[in-house]
Structures are given as C-alpha cells and as structure tokens.
Amino acid sequence: MSTVVHLSGPQRRGPDLKELLAQVAFGDQDAFGRLYDVVAGPVFGLVRRVLRDPSQSEEVTQEVMLEVWRTAARYQPDRGEVMSWVLTMAHRRAVDRVRSAQATADREQRVAARSHVPAFDEVAEQVEGRLEREQVRRCLRMLTELQRQAVTLAYYRGYSYREVADMLSAPLGTVKTRMRDGLIRLRDCLGVES
C-alpha cells in the first residue's frame, strides 16, 4: 500500500527578483539584503569559473553586487530576467578583470625587457670576438701550407692526427711535427703566454 502525501496551503517559492530589484532601485536596503542572499551565490560561482582565484572571485562578486545596488534603476524588466541581468554584469566584470590582469602582466614584461641590462656590453663583446677571429686568420696565413692545413683539419674540423695524416698523404710523424711547430707560431703570433 502506498501513502500519498498532499501538501496543503501555498507552496513556498523564492522571492520575486523583479519586485526586489524595483525596491532596491528606491534605496531599500532590506530588499537589497534579500536580493543579495539570492544572487550572490550564483554570481560568485560564475566569477570563480572565469577567474579561478577564490580571493579575486570574492572581490569581483562584491564589485558586481555594489554595481547592482548603484544601477538597479537601469534594469528594464521587458529586456530579460533579473538573474540574467546580474549574471551578465558578473561575467563582464570577471572578463574585464582577466583582461586587466593580462594587460598588467604584458606591461610588466615589456618594462622588464626594456630595463634589462646585460651583464656585459654585447656590442663590445661582438667587436672583440670579431677582432680575435681576424687576428687568428692573420696568424694562420703566416704558417706554412702544411702547418695551416694540419691545424685547420685538427682544431677547426675535429680530425685526429692519423686522419689528418691520411687526408694530407703525409707521414704521421711529419704531421705531428708540423702541427706542433704551427701551434707554437700561432701562440707567438697571438701573444699567448705558455
């Protein structure tokens, strides 16, 4: 046997938001308190989904509710429901906060990039590097052909002494001697102390 329960009397429903907002438009603080109780939770939920940060979400929710208090008279009932009006306001405010945070981060990044001072003078470093390379080239030109080829193959191309000897069709001992003599001449030309 099943039991049927009948509800008697009027069924309880939420407050009429349009009516509450109309009262808020006339400065009714009690009506605003009741409106706040109904809409603040959904506003916070929407803002939190956009911002993800709980403290910023609370801040934006308070800004939205303050905006509802100040602009209640602008609400036009024929253009939509109160909850939609408030949530649209909340979404716009949350998106504005995201854009503002991104613009601030971009601005800070640009300022940091402009104010970045390298640990060394890049131009001087490049000039010095070019001068050193030119000096090495000049000193290499002072070597004999066999010395220059052996040093270039071994030190700039990474070949072993045996590979250099094979490539130059010269005995290994000769290549080693020419390389040693070539390196000594390079050291002296470059002014490197041993």
Rank of each mutant, 00 (worst) to 15 (best):
T3C: 10
V4P: 04
V4I: 15
H6E: 13
S8P: 00
S8C: 02
P10Y: 01
P10V: 02
Q11D: 02
R12M: 06
R13A: 01
R13P: 00
R13Y: 00
G14I: 04
P15L: 11
D16V: 08
L17Q: 14
A22N: 09
A22F: 07
V24M: 06
Q29T: 10
D30I: 05
D30N: 08
A31K: 01
R34V: 11
Y36M: 05
D37V: 05
V38L: 11
V38W: 01
V38H: 04
A40S: 15
A40Q: 10
L46R: 14
V47D: 03
V47G: 03
D53V: 08
Q56L: 13
S57W: 04
E59C: 03
E59V: 02
T61N: 06
T61I: 02
E63Q: 13
V64S: 13
M65I: 10
L66D: 10
V68K: 05
W69Q: 01
R70E: 06
T71S: 10
R74G: 09
Q76F: 01
G80A: 05
G80I: 08
E81S: 12
V82W: 04
M83Y: 00
S84C: 00
S84H: 01
W85P: 00
W85L: 01
V86I: 08
V86P: 01
M89W: 01
H91M: 09
R92C: 04
A94L: 03
D96E: 10
R99H: 13
T104I: 11
D106L: 10
D106M: 06
E108G: 09
Q109F: 13
R110D: 11
A113C: 02
S115I: 03
V117E: 12
P118W: 05
A119K: 08
D121H: 03
D121P: 05
E122A: 13
E125V: 07
E125H: 06
E128S: 13
E128K: 07
G129D: 10
L131C: 09
R133V: 12
R137C: 04
L140N: 07
M142W: 09
T144I: 10
Q147G: 11
Q147L: 12
A150H: 08
A150W: 08
V151I: 15
T152F: 00
A154S: 14
A154W: 01
Y155D: 15
R157Q: 15
Y159V: 07
A165T: 06
A165K: 08
M167E: 07
L168S: 06
A170T: 08
A170N: 00
P171Q: 02
P171D: 08
K176I: 07
K176Y: 02
K176S: 03
T177W: 05
L183C: 10
R185G: 13
L186W: 14
G191S: 11
G191C: 07
V192T: 11
V192I: 15
E193M: 12
E193W: 14
S194F: 12
